[in-house]
């Protein structure tokens, strides 16, 4: 839910700004993102390429590449992430955080057998006999003894993702950040892997940050949805409610452009234009150029989050839109 009690929040991101600076240009990935997440919540962070969701995930572990500069406040389990010493951030990553990446095969060392990788991941503890097999059984890998002897290139993407999950969940992390962990997988495997992550997270009592562009999976598995656009949070509320009745024009357009939800014969309402790339702070609302409801102030004044129906929404015209829709204002595509 939006704006929960600050003291109860396990993750606090306050006005985070992240720039990727290269000699030739600067790209702004986060443009003042603000987010509070209480312990144990399962949060789906939804956004397209350039929305800043991956950067947000990396920021929590201060895992940004060296060319990134970050400002703002980031608090994870009571530690100010951006101010920690290298040793302290390493400790935080080890004790509190776990990450699962999209490219599971790529996250494994290609020269080591699975068994060896798993025992290295458990250092400094030595795996007890049978412990590795138990780890693989937990992520429902059949014939674990055989799999432990294989190299990463000998296993499927789904299997690699399960192994990455086994490694991530082994320490029962307080916070799990999963960045599009199923995007590269087949539909059916995708569902199994998603279920696995959420079940293991529930057993371990972990907070889950599920970064995804898949609204439907988020609606199914997450308590709360955070929709990002242009490096800011544009809508934030109970997942099922937001997807059933989106309020922000971007969320609404996104939900409407899913072909799976369309009745037969209906035409897909597409959003014109393409997601933007920011080079500095957005002058107004980042979605304004693509928004069917955009007014003058939208492109000149930065919107501040407002609370409607216990959701945080970042839109100047949030209260006028229902009337505009009723008046038969334009849909996204015909402009």
């Amino acid at each position: 839910m939006s704006a929960p009690n600050a003291s109860a929040a396990q993750i606090v991101v306050e006005n985070a700004v992240v720039d990727y600076v290269t000699p030739s240009r600067t790209v702004r990935a986060l443009d003042g993102a603000t987010l509070r997440i209480p312990a144990g919540q399962r949060v789906g962070v939804v956004g397209e390429s350039g929305s800043g969701k991956s950067t947000l995930g990396l920021l929590l572990g201060r895992l940004l590449p060296s060319l990134a500069t970050a400002t703002g406040a980031v608090d994870v389990a009571g530690s100010p992430v951006l101010e920690l010493t290298p040793a302290a951030i390493a400790r935080l990553r080890r004790s509190e955080l776990a990450f699962i990446a999209q490219d599971a095969v790529g996250s494994l060392n290609p020269t080591l057998r699975i068994g060896r990788q798993l025992s290295l991941a458990m250092r400094p503890a030595k795996p007890a006999p049978g412990e590795l097999v138990a780890m693989l059984e937990r992520v429902r890998i059949r014939d674990p003894e055989r799999v432990l002897r294989l190299f990463p290139h000998e296993i499927s993407g789904g299997m690699a993702q399960r192994i990455a999950i086994a490694m991530a969940m082994h320490r029962a992390p307080r916070i799990l950040v999963a960045d599009e962990p199923t995007a590269a997988l087949d539909t059916q495997v995708r569902d199994e892997v998603t279920r696995l992550v959420f079940e293991l997270a529930r057993e371990a009592g972990s907070t889950v940050l599920w970064l995804s562009h898949d609204l439907i999976a988020v609606a199914k598995w997450c308590d709360r949805i955070v929709v990002m656009y242009g490096g800011r949070v544009v809508e934030d509320g109970v997942a099922a409610e937001v997807i059933a009745r989106p309020r922000h024009p971007y969320t609404a357009a996104l939900a409407a452009s899913l072909p799976a939800r369309l009745a037969p014969g209906e035409r897909l309402p597409a959003i014109t234009g393409s997601p933007l790339v920011l080079t500095g702070p957005a002058a107004g609302c980042a979605f304004a150029p693509r928004c069917p409801f955009a007014a003058e102030q939208c492109s000149t004044v930065r919107p501040e989050p407002v609370i409607r129906e216990s959701r945080g929404i970042l839109c100047h015209r949030i209260d006028e839109i229902p009337a505009l829709v009723a008046a038969g204002a334009t849909s996204g595509e015909t402009s």
Partner: peptide
Amino acid sequence: MTGTVAPIPRATAAQAARRGLRRA
């Protein structure tokens, strides 16, 4: 078709930066 013709693609930041790279 929607009958609309997309405007000249805006020189997005990405494109501007790529041009910068090529100049370099």
